[in-house]
């Protein structure tokens, strides 16, 4: 076995973080490492945390880490922040709220920038999860960007999805309409000491009662979490949240839903890798030769239609592969 694979499986943070970096930078050799790593993955419980900016995702993650560490579980955290479309740069600021765990060897926090991905995660997130799993983390928490309302990539990666809402942000119902309603396994009403929390809870519960999901056997609970500045009640709420997550885990295992989710995840992985391994190189090579521009030009001037162009490209690239 590769020395880096060995090191990662032994939990070495530096090697793991390095490999994540190479995946982010799309270093070809990195894929080979993942291939060899893959048999060591699939054992962690993966929690997704999503919700609008300012909902308090990082603070909740921080508190969950503290709670989960009490039972000695090892934890990996992937915190995703947006890349600026203008400069390509990013400020990765989630970690700041988790810095008190920096020295805890049982906790590994890694920030990722979206680098153009739109689904709330980064392209590298899937492999970064694999790497953390190979390190032997009991739990991997993935915190999404929380900017858009299309952040549903997380269901392809996580076993339990937490959707964080805050009273008074005005967009709760919108959020629900936009699809976050369907992806939630657990709802958290954060900053629940604020005005409007009770009402939000009622609205949410009544919507959940109408939803088809409850018929499946798991009715997403609504957990109220108060002000993080009031240590006593906050800790109590977090203990409750952590129990709900555990209950959901047990439910998934007992109902067979866990295998269903693993299957869904595998399908998504095929989809993602096909895109990365087949489509991306094609697009890149066409772009490098200036052909991509020419095709676009043709389509624009109605000299060709997109389907014919796609067929022509497929002919050229994939035929060749077959002939070889």
């Amino acid at each position: 076995m590769d020395s880096i694979i060995k090191k990662i499986c032994a939990g070495d943070v530096r090697s793991a973080s390095r490999l994540i970096r190479d995946i982010e930078d799309k270093i070809p050799e990195a894929r080979a490492k993942i291939k060899r790593l893959y048999s060591h993955t699939g054992k962690s419980f993966i929690i997704g945390i999503t919700g609008a900016p300012g909902a308090g995702k990082s603070t909740l993650t921080d508190a969950l880490i503290t709670e989960l560490r009490k039972s000695n579980k090892t934890i990996g955290v992937l915190a995703v922040d947006p890349t600026s479309p203008f400069t390509g740069g990013a400020i990765l600021g989630d970690r700041i709220r988790m810095q008190s765990h920096a020295e805890d060897r049982g906790v590994f926090v890694r920030s990722l920038a979206t680098r153009g991905a739109l689904g709330g995660l980064s392209q590298a997130a899937g492999d970064a999860i694999h790497i953390m799993e190979a390190m032997g983390k009991d739990i991997v928490i993935v915190e999404t960007v929380g900017i858009g309302q299309q952040e549903i990539d997380i269901i392809n990666h996580a076993h339990s999805v937490l959707v964080i809402l805050v009273p008074g942000m005005g967009d709760e119902v919108q959020t629900m309409k936009a699809g976050l309603m369907e992806i939630a396994d657990i709802f958290v009403i954060n900053k629940a000491n604020r005005a409007g929390a009770k009402q939000l809870q009622m609205e949410l519960t009544s919507m959940l009662n109408l939803s088809s999901k409850s018929a499946e056997g798991w009715k997403p609970p609504v957990v109220m979490v108060g002000d993080a500045f009031k240590p006593e009640t906050f800790t109590e709420n977090i203990v409750k949240l952590s129990k709900k997550i555990e209950e959901h885990h047990i439910y998934l295992q007992q109902s067979g839903k866990l295998t269903e989710r693993m299957h869904r995840k595998a399908m998504a992985e095929i989809n993602d890798t096909l895109h990365a391994c087949l489509l991306e190189p094609v697009i890149k090579s066409l772009a490098a030769g200036g052909e991509l521009e020419k095709f676009a030009e043709k389509i624009k001037n109605r000299k060709a239609d997109p389907y014919s162009v796609a067929e022509e490209i497929a002919q050229r690239f994939f035929k060749k592969e077959n002939e070889k």
Partner: peptide, 11 residues
């Protein structure tokens, strides 16, 4: 008793 405040890191 009151808890510790952490830099929320807003910039």
């Amino acid at each position: 008793v009151y808890g510790e405040y952490k830099d929320p890191g807003l910039y």
